[in-house]
Design a protein around this nucleic acid. Sequence first.
DNA 1: CTCTCCATACAGACTGGTCTGTATATACTT
DNA 2: AAGTATATACAGACCAGTCTGTATGGAGAG
Lengths: 210, 210
Amino acid sequence: MTARAEATRERLLKAAKQLVMSKGFAGMSIDDVLRATDLTKGAFFHHFKSKADLADQLMRWYAENDMKMFRTLLAEAEAAHDDPLDQLLKFLTDFEAYLCDPEHPPRGCMYALYTYEDDHFENAVKDFVAETLRTWTAMYIRKFQEVIDRHPPARHVSAKQLAEMFVAVIEGGLILERAHKNPGMAARQSEQFRSYLELLFPSAPRERAA
Amino acid sequence: MTARAEATRERLLKAAKQLVMSKGFAGMSIDDVLRATDLTKGAFFHHFKSKADLADQLMRWYAENDMKMFRTLLAEAEAAHDDPLDQLLKFLTDFEAYLCDPEHPPRGCMYALYTYEDDHFENAVKDFVAETLRTWTAMYIRKFQEVIDRHPPARHVSAKQLAEMFVAVIEGGLILERAHKNPGMAARQSEQFRSYLELLFPSAPRERAA
DNA sequence: CTCTCCATACAGACTGGTCTGTATATACTT
DNA sequence: AAGTATATACAGACCAGTCTGTATGGAGAG
């Protein structure tokens, strides 16, 4: 694949992402994507062998970018602090900043979207979404476990519960954000979640207050 | 509208609800609904003047049933306890039971679904969804305010924040539930939220422990 | 009580248009 | 020249919505 072809593929994927986020996958037609990119059927079917294939590739592409971003945020947080709780709280605040950044306006989560259109996707795609969410969650579980090991929680709680709650809170926040056309609601949910963590782990070091 | 006609209308709405929940609105065709109900175009267009009209009526019908359920749960909780926190906790546990009830299998929330298909709906419908969510949230805000007034929270928090967090947690839980095909994840989120509440309001009466 | 008449409720063929996907031609690159 | 990348034209399925027609139930007249 030449550089030009790769660029075309990206253009198609980017446009598809935007459209999917606002109309859903079934609601988006291939022609919509072509209109948005000023390309034609030939280009599309050269890169994707069907609309279902687009669904698949789009999700993989999205997940890859998404995951990269999260890993970066986490790595930065780990570099900045020693204590896992400090790391986590920095990660959360950085993530909140990202959520509020007007640079990234297609607010919403494509996993959630695919999940709500279920029947239209092949099992491979659905499994991939589930798998990705699992990986995502696992990342948080590891970190929460470190926190729990270091700081006795004020109330019995498992790393898995906390990890899942964080994912849920963000997904839910994004829905509220969309429904109310009120950017920032997802970030507020993350804040609220931090509040919960601070109650759970009162013995944490004060370094992060600085 | 005769009783028979009303029954037909309900049949159409029920089938549409099921289908929408599994394929999304754009992904569902009118013919899908007709196949599911063994009715015909004539019947459909007698009751709905267009597919958009179905979207509208379906949402209103759904919201009505939904709201009725929540109001009932809340009323029961208020009848069972004097303390607002006890009422709230009972409401949450009852709601968790409902979420786990295999009788109600179309897991998911239609507000979330509509939200993620945005562009396909008229403003009237979108506004209605936002309005309904607002009403829903307002119900919780009132109750949380009573709790805060009675029990000093361990950490500053507003009733609105808590209400929105609950809605977010449930919406997010439903997404996880769908993605992982794991019923019960939404209920577990509600549990986790209760855990937060119990940390927030440690001075609560012990009545609820009984 | 019963016959007539009409509104309501539904059936199902049909239309115009949109959708995905294919076939083929053309341009670019090396 | 050869393979890759994109354009264009088109086939055929499907979809929302329309139109004409039919069954049914109830109100009013006799």
